[in-house]
């Protein structure tokens, strides 16, 4: 059987976000795993309890380990690397969640003005939460 191919349709908005949902879901799990393993390499087994370790894995913010047995969080647990990790997780998490909200809204609303209004509201909320999250990360 000969191979049949057709030119790929242009990346539609729906398709792009459908792919993004999958990539961001896997991305959050991957980043969580990196946070988990790196914390263990930094002796988390003796320094953190399980709850703190899991909270750290999915949001490696220094405030989450400040009350643990870590003598000084500044060199290993609070640096630019973890800030980048936090931002990536926050971007994936907030975007994944708000896209889910958009999909739910559009599942129930057809072509109408309400769709445009609610889509705009979801976009503004997404932007608002992203800015707040980045502020929290940079300020902590």
């Amino acid at each position: 059987m000969r191979t049949r191919t057709v030119p790929q349709p242009a990346m539609s908005f729906e398709y792009t976000l459908w792919i993004f949902t999958r990539i961001s879901g896997l991305g959050m799990l991957g980043l969580g795993l990196i946070g988990f393993v790196t914390a263990l390499i930094m002796n988390a087994r003796n320094l953190l309890d399980m709850n703190t370790l899991l909270r750290w894995s999915f949001f490696p913010n220094p405030n989450h380990v400040v009350n643990s047995n870590i003598p000084d969080i500044s060199p290993g647990w609070s640096n630019a690397y973890w800030q980048v990790m936090e931002m990536l997780i926050v971007f994936f998490g907030i975007s994944h969640g708000f896209n889910g909200l958009r999909v739910i809204i559009e599942d129930f609303i057809g072509h109408s003005l309400w769709q445009t209004i609610l889509r705009g509201a979801v976009f503004l909320l997404w932007l608002f939460f992203l800015i707040i999250a980045v502020y929290v990360i940079l300020a902590s």
Partner: peptide, 24 residues
């Protein structure tokens, strides 16, 4: 269908907002 020549057009239709990606 290997005899058909409008697959691209059908895929374009199904790639729309209320096309195949509304399937959950």
């Amino acid at each position: 269908d290997s005899r058909d020549r409008a697959s691209s057009e059908r895929l374009r239709i199904l790639n729309g907002q209320f096309g195949v990606f509304r399937c959950h």
